[in-house]
Amino acid sequence: MSESLVTTVSAGWAVLAAIILGGLAFFAVALEAALSARAHGASGGWVAPVARTARLLRQRRRTTVAADTLLWRIGGAGLLVGAFAMVAVIPLGRWTLADLDVGVVWFNAVDVMVWALVWLAGWGANSTHSLVGGYRFLAHGLAYELPLMFALVAPAIAAGSLRVGEVAAAQEGLWFVVWMPVAFLVYLIGVTGFSVWGPFAPALSADIAGGVLSELSGVDRLVFLAGRYALLAAGAAFAVPLFLGGGAGPVLPGWAWSLVKTVAVLTVLVWLRRKLPMLRPDRFMEIGWMILLPAAVLQDLVVSLIVVGKG
């Protein structure tokens, strides 16, 4: 393999990565709250998440009869851990925490973990509504995961590498988003899917009393909700080296461009949430397997043909 294109920094920098991820997640929550306030004709809203966090931190933990506490806590806290595990392979400009030779597969493995975690969070409470929520998420997962996997394949084929740094470097001159827009779109749908967010939130929706969230309270609820936004932020950040040219851009240094692009993707995702309806798991199965999956496979075929054609 050729010389590594990104510099691996020491593990101590993980703290900075965690702070950046936390900041991005907070930005997403605050933006969501501000848009929500505006939609209701109120102003501000940017500080609402702080107030909500403070309230959840003070709230007493609710307990349920015969709860499977071990699995419940694993499911609740796991999303946040998973988001950090994703960020470990995302280069910030020139630097990365872990330059794995299979970084793209690593990201995919972590997003599959979310299946288990959300279901466990639904199972642990020993409550009907939360278990129904867990199964709703699995049904969504079956629908979005395969298209997402094939969408991740496209940039890897084009770059001829599963190393995230090399995928980013392969886009010099022409970003992958330009000639694989379908894969990019499917990828973004997958990101909202594994964040249990926006159109993919029926697992947590009000018609089943909050679903997976129904029995989560206090700090457990806070960690679960933070985990969702952290996953959304990590997904947006991973789109940058995968489709948007990594840290490439004029004037500003690479790390700044990585952050600017991440914030841009995150803003679009949060803004789109108000424009899209919730997707029923059984209906979305049809969209996922009859439209998105063939579209993503065709995209892979086109990318492969172009790569072969160029030699």
Binding site: L100, D101, V102, V105, W106, N108, A109, V112, M113, W115, A116, W119, W123, Y135, L138, G141, L142, E145, L162
Partner: peptide, 23 residues
């Protein structure tokens, strides 16, 4: 690395799907 990560990926996914089947 590839075989290791893909083993973890497949097995977690399989167990999650098994949770569907078991009910």
């Amino acid at each position: 690395s590839y075989l290791g990560v893909i083993t973890i990926l497949m097995m977690v996914m399989e167990m999650a799907v098994m949770a569907v089947y078991m009910v």
